[in-house]
């Protein structure tokens, strides 16, 4: 049996019929074809499926799609602020507080002027700090960071660690990700 649900996804109202067993993650990926949200484990242990629901970071694999009826959901696809805006210029520069002098990624974009326009500051910080490798944990990490900044514009390191706790990354060793999330406020 199917249930009609109406929810806002990235600001747009969508209405669909879904079976009870469908998770919010399956609904977002298969039903809405928003594949930026990733399926890493299916039981809430990895964080790759993190989306923001009614202002809070949640794990989409642990929520039934029917439960999201009437909710507002934000996914990674909703983050780019203004796709048509001019290229925002240099990526963010050096950040204090890591205790080391790390080489910074220089401003030159390998993809050229104007591309990447309108990226959210968190996305730009991830690029600037080398916080992206395979990219599979990245959307979940960024959404967790976004939820953090939405409620706390000046998080300290402990708040960042708390917000990213339970988000697994096997590529970066986490340090560049923490640096990136902290770098957002210095932008």
């Amino acid at each position: 049996m199917n249930y009609t649900i109406t929810l806002k996804v990235n600001g747009r109202t969508v209405q669909r019929d879904v079976p009870a067993h469908l998770t919010l993650l399956e609904f977002i990926r298969s039903g809405l074809q928003l594949t930026g949200t990733k399926h890493g484990c299916g039981n809430g242990e990895c964080g790759a499926c993190t989306v923001i629901m009614d202002g809070k970071a949640v794990r989409a694999c642990l929520i039934l799609a029917v439960e999201a009826n009437g909710c507002a959901v934000e996914t990674i696809e909703g983050l780019v602020e203004s796709p048509l805006a001019p290229f925002a210029g240099e990526l963010p520069g050096a950040v204090t507080g890591t205790g080391h002098s790390h080489p910074e990624i220089n401003g030159a974009s390998p993809v050229g002027e104007g591309v990447g326009a309108g990226l959210h500051p968190i996305q730009r910080a991830f690029l600037a700090k080398g916080a992206v490798q395979c990219g599979f944990c990245t959307p979940g990490m960024i959404m967790a960071a976004k939820a953090l900044y939405d409620r706390n514009p000046n998080p300290d390191r402990a708040a960042v660690v708390e917000a990213l706790g339970g988000h697994l990354c096997r590529c970066t060793g986490y340090q560049p990700i923490i640096d990136a999330v902290l770098a957002v406020q210095t932008e």
């Binding site: 970071a57 949640v58 794990r59 929520i63 967790a144 939820a147 339970g166 988000h167």
Partner: peptide, 9 residues
């Protein structure tokens, strides 16, 4: 318990 996202739910 769990992590941020778990504690919200």
């Amino acid at each position: 318990m769990g992590c941020c996202e778990i504690r919200h739910r």
